[in-house]
Amino acid sequence: MSSILLTDQLTKSFGKIQAVRQLSFEVKKGQVFGILGPNGSGKTTTLSMLLDLVPPDKGGFSWFGESPSRESRKRIGSVIESPNFFPYLDAVCNLRIVADIKDKGYDDIPGVLRLTGLYERRNSKFRTFSFGMRQRLALASALLGDPEVLILDEPTNGLDPQGIAQIREIIALVASKGTTILLASHLLDEVQKICTDVLVLNKGKMLFSGEVREVLAVSDSIEISAEDMPALKNAVSQFEGFSSLTEADGTLQVHFKGPVSAMEINTFMFSKGIVLNRLSERKRSLEQHFLELLRENV
């Protein structure tokens, strides 16, 4: 997979506040890369730097293996914060201005308007649009000229459930075409549903980065039970990485210091001569993991 974006020690302060601290990460072609963090964690600042809106204090980044330029920005479609258009111009005219800036033709305009469900309203002035429609027009403008990368900053922020579903549907469609997506969100659920990879950011610092699948696969608690419960308790406490256990309703909830697979436990118990009649992994949701990461780094 070729590298789309590479950042190196990106750092930015606003006065005394360190918005982003030495952030290094890589986004590869085809990834749906989520930047996850609570409000004020530096997500928007990071994206602003990547789009040359805010100069970094230190560090740098490259797009498509080249140093950033307006040519590289033309290959990127982005929706940052609020949709910015001329209120007195209609949807088509606003998109034409965007197409002119990006050096793209107008042929894509009907297509992106249909994709975002705005074709019927193409001749309405932007100021008459509802919030959801504005957000979709921003997405339409980002999709003009078939960009290689789509940058989305809180794309569903402030939308009603229907609006959220519409936006996510469009993102999923675009991702399925192989477009690389960089998405910032404070919603775990969103990242979990849309992204393939995730970077967790808090107070400008990277806490974690990896595949969403990997994050979800981590399990550090297991439920077990057997005929001989005292022997089971005794055996499990000898397991390497054992941390604590709680007993409830005839099952043991066992916590470990690191990730443990069901297979390892089963093999271990078997060697101790204990036959388990119940064994289930308790996968942590991304949310738990996220909250734990935040807690660890307070």
Binding site: L53, R70, R73, I80, S82, N84, P87, V98, I101, S141
Partner: peptide, 13 residues
């Protein structure tokens, strides 16, 4: 209208 910001984002110098 923040269109200056958008123009830069879209690739205008």
């Amino acid at each position: 209208f923040k269109t200056i910001r958008q123009s830069i984002i879209n690739g205008m110098s």
